[in-house]
Write a protein that binds this DNA or RNA. Structure first.
Length: 261
DNA sequence: ATGGCGTAGTACCTACGA
């Protein structure tokens, strides 16, 4: 089975591109981030037409995550990690959705960006990462095949960015962000893309600005972390890079891992 | 040395992103 993640940057603006990608690559599971719609605006019937059933967790304007599965409905396990946003009284943002699909635990996340650094948004990012790590420890203890995937908004190492110097002050690159990510790997989770591309140079994001795509000024922030039960079954992992070059593209590309049945 | 783009909301600008 193929399990994929795609930060689509607005499901309404991206719907034709998204349907196209699903039909062309036919992932068994597709996790979406930044759907940027309230629950009522989610176009579930468009996915049903092409054989996908979905669960989703939206909010107005920003954030929002969804899990699509080919021919079966994801069984929801958890919605949200129980952590409020950085502004007083704003409540929790729609950034986490966990489900089971065909015996595999699917944990879909959209981690806070954390800019500007330093500041309350960066503190929120680090707190969110610790909350995520706690949840991952719980899942680990269940000893189920699991993948924790999505837009982590962390560039793990210098080999994962076109220019470490140009990005040095960005929240995605700060030592605190990287250390929090490294702790998850130290806990035993396997970074699928990195494991199969240990020399780096694989990007999943290119900014819309400054001709970043044309100049290949990208970086890797979309990750798939596998539990040992799934890491043993990994046969391939990759990035659907060409979708970044299409009309009305998202600024992220899809990423995916192939798991033996 | 700078700025450069795109989405959504209620909108002719602002918030947000990375």
């Amino acid at each position: 089975m193929r399990i994929a993640s795609f930060n689509i940057n607005g499901i309404k603006a991206r719907l034709p591109r998204l349907i196209e990608w699903l039909e062309e690559t036919r992932p068994s599971v597709a996790c979406l981030q930044e759907i940027k719609t309230m629950d009522e605006g989610f176009p579930a019937e468009e996915f049903e037409k092409i054989g996908y059933q979905a669960i989703w967790h939206g909010q107005k304007s920003f954030n929002g995550v969804a899990i699509l599965a080919d021919g079966t409905k994801p069984v929801e396990i958890k919605r949200g990690l129980g952590i409020d946003g950085p502004k007083d009284g704003e409540g929790e943002q729609a950034r986490y959705l966990e489900a089971e699909v065909n015996g595999v635990r699917i944990c879909n996340l959209y981690l806070p960006n954390g800019n500007p650094h330093p500041g309350p948004k960066f503190d929120y990012k680090l707190a969110w990462m610790e909350k995520l790590r706690s949840r991952m420890k719980e899942i680990w203890a269940e000893e189920v095949p699991a993948v924790v995937l999505g837009d982590y908004n962390v560039i793990p190492e210098d080999k994962d960015v076109w220019s470490p110097k140009a990005m040095a002050s960005d929240a995605l690159m700060q030592p605190e962000s990287r250390d929090a990510y490294k702790r998850m790997l130290a806990d035993g989770w396997t970074d699928a893309i990195d494991t199969l591309n240990p020399r780096g140079g694989v990007w999943t994001y290119w900014d819309y600005q400054a001709g970043a795509w044309q100049r290949d000024h990208g970086f890797r922030i979309d990750h798939l972390l596998l539990s040992p039960e799934l890491a043993d079954r990994m046969t391939a992992a990759g990035v659907d890079k060409e979708y970044r070059g299409r009309e009305k593209a998202s600024d992220h590309t899809p990423v995916w891992v192939e798991i033996a049945d």
